[in-house]
C-alpha cells in the first residue's frame, strides 16, 4: 500500500489531501452546527415555561368584551407595563 502511494503521482497526493481537508471541514461544520443547535435549545423557553400558552389569550380588550358578552363569561384582563405575552 505504502509503496503504491510512494509511486503515486503528485495529482493523487493532491486529491487525497483535498479529500482529507474536505472531510475535516465537513466534520468541523457538523460540529459547529450541533453546538449551535445545543445552545439555541438551551436558551429557548422550555415546555414547562410556556404553560401560559395553553390559555387562549386575546390581545384586544374590545374583542374580549364581544366574546364575553356572546358567551356569557367574565373577562380576565392581565395588564402590565410591558406586554405580559411579550416583554415585561
Amino acid at each position: 500500500m505504502s509503496s503504491r502511494l510512494l509511486c503515486a503521482s503528485p495529482a493523487v497526493f493532491l486529491a487525497l489531501a483535498l479529500h482529507a481537508s474536505s472531510t475535516d471541514a465537513n466534520a468541523a461544520d457538523a460540529s459547529a452546527r450541533a453546538q449551535f443547535a445545543e445552545l439555541h435549545a438551551l436558551i429557548k423557553p422550555r415546555v414547562a415555561e410556556q404553560k401560559w400558552e395553553q390559555i387562549p389569550w386575546l390581545t384586544s380588550l374590545w374583542e374580549a368584551r364581544q366574546k364575553a358578552a356572546r358567551e356569557g363569561k367574565p373577562i380576565l384582563l392581565w395588564e402590565m407595563d410591558g406586554h405580559p405575552l411579550g416583554c415585561t
Binding site: I55, L58, T59, S60, A68, G82, H83, T88
Partner: peptide, 12 residues
Amino acid sequence: AREDFIAVAADD
C-alpha cells in the same frame, strides 16, 4: 382561566 373566563392580556 381557560374555561370560565375570556382571557386577554395587554400592555398598560
